[in-house]
Design a protein around this nucleic acid. Sequence first.
DNA 1: GGCGGGAACGTAAACGTTTTCATGGCTGCT
DNA 2: AGCAGCCATGAAAACGTTTACGTTCCCGCC
Lengths: 359, 359
Amino acid sequence: MKTFTFPPLGDSGASAKLVMATITIKDVAREANVSVASVSRALNGGSGVTAETGQRIRDVALRLRYIPHAAARMLITRRTNTIGALLPDLYGEFFSELIRGIDLAARAHGLHLLVSSSHDSSDDAAAALRAMQGRVDGILIMSAHVDDAFLRANLPEDLPTVLINSPVKDEAYRVINVDNYAGARAMTKHLIDTGHTDIAFIAGPKNNFDAQQRENGYRAAMAKYASKVAPVVLAGDFTEEAGFRAGQEILARKKRPNAVFAANDMMAVGCMHAFREAGVCVPQDIALAGFDDIPVARYVAPPLSTVRVRIVDLGRSALEAVATMLENPDHPTTAGPTFGCEIVVRETCGASSAPASHE
Amino acid sequence: MKTFTFPPLGDSGASAKLVMATITIKDVAREANVSVASVSRALNGGSGVTAETGQRIRDVALRLRYIPHAAARMLITRRTNTIGALLPDLYGEFFSELIRGIDLAARAHGLHLLVSSSHDSSDDAAAALRAMQGRVDGILIMSAHVDDAFLRANLPEDLPTVLINSPVKDEAYRVINVDNYAGARAMTKHLIDTGHTDIAFIAGPKNNFDAQQRENGYRAAMAKYASKVAPVVLAGDFTEEAGFRAGQEILARKKRPNAVFAANDMMAVGCMHAFREAGVCVPQDIALAGFDDIPVARYVAPPLSTVRVRIVDLGRSALEAVATMLENPDHPTTAGPTFGCEIVVRETCGASSAPASHE
DNA sequence: GGCGGGAACGTAAACGTTTTCATGGCTGCT
DNA sequence: AGCAGCCATGAAAACGTTTACGTTCCCGCC
């Protein structure tokens, strides 16, 4: 028989740490002279029980430091109060901001967060997805490896799912995308507006959805606002090295463009290094812009003009989408709004004449 | 009665997506003409069952897409196969690297990862900790708000716990610390060795454990290798602004030091801005060093010398520590080894004469 | 041929909740 | 006074597993 002798106040030192086998709802019930059903009612809804008994039960529970067994509750309730996040091997900054947004929203909704990151193959992702099965009520997926077929094969169809930055078209899935297209379009237009018409674009990985969208935005703006010049697109893969090589390539061209728009900041930084090495000045000799607004963008010299994505908000609204899906399961699967982004003008695009001051 | 009509191969299009109520171990048992006990044995240990029946059961399970109900298993097994990570509101880069390391190791051990980040008050952390109770087999804590009392009040004492970068001394808890002291000491010595004896130190937040250790390392090296000059310590709080102000303060001193060592990179960057604004050249006029090796460090001009912490490995070994603790519960609580770090010499300390090339 | 022993397998209990249903007491109305 | 109905409460089923314990069967040995 267990006996409970918790002092109502802080432990009296010596007597602390008795063995205390995990205490269950039964212990609380016995101690409060009620049935387990009443304890459950008092601790959950609160209804169906007298205010007086309810208080007594809560007191006992507190005194015994009772914590309901999560698994037992999951088993009967068929809810885990957990959502899973399947994330790729991401750039540090983006990753942490995204998680922060997701986590913030999750805690606000009383949900737990089960993460699985840095899987880099499709099989890997499938395994991770399977492993999450049954441990989560909903799932958040951001991965280059998912497409319709993958999802259909690895997801139980009744599991609320939200895709982040995914090319998946299927109406069955909720998708939240960053509006890469509009962002790239806006930045290209800005460059044109500030007098740069010969703009080269350093592309991202071929199979990357974001990268494609950005390139499309660039092409669209060029077609509309600088129809006289043909768009110039150089290959890249989002790495700094690729940007560096692209930069060298640009300098080697017989007709040098007067601006370069890189599909992400890392490549812009690499490109800037190439220019500096060759003694080409940014923005005087050539303007430069990136995409993402990673922190580094502010600290390179000169500070990089770029397109900012509110990553925290992206994560937050993704989680909120799953949350609403599982709050009203008769999901109308409202088509996800794309997520806006804004251009932030610093010095590399030559528009701002602000001094290199402490931003 | 449920009937199962799964085609052995890929769905034949039209017939896909029948309602398929979640299938349990009983369904598998019935379909394979065995008892649930045998199914359990076949799928888990594999022993206590004929090779033949075992195979048949596995086939059926696969065909039915059976996935054991995690909660039911947790309930009876009293293991969740999940470890929780309680993390503070961290700097982006550090955070993501740490998570990456933890996640990698977790997956290698077949463990899930329940994260809870960005809690910024002690109560907040306590709530998060309580919420994790019963959902995890072990826990990883990195937070400024934890001390012995906090842990004792909020942690069941039988829960394997590992503290990351914590000042907690209690032998009961496993602690893994970065060797901030040695790192700071080494960097200070390096500055002295390269001819800078008048070194000012920009401190971190007063209550921050890492910051204190770093300051101690600086003082120790000064005392040992530059005993003639008194250490100069300026207040800071790890923010760029603090570094900027400290930089101005340093320039205003009547006896200007010939080197500055900031307790982290962000402050070093801020300091550098102050110097640049004042027309003071780094490293010609004054040397500069930071701590952390955040990515920005490589991209500022000139690239920042700093002390690198292998964050991924830190996360990995922290998780591995919990993993071993729950593999052999008779934990001897081996005192955690502190985690080494290395100084990385770039240009701001004036030692390297390498050109500003593409690193 | 009897018997001991081990392996394969089934039965049922147990894990800690929530929830449905039944029961009893009380209130208020006729 | 009787009855309807509500409300607090308790008993028990259910959730899907694992596992201790029996039972059966077969094999080999005396």
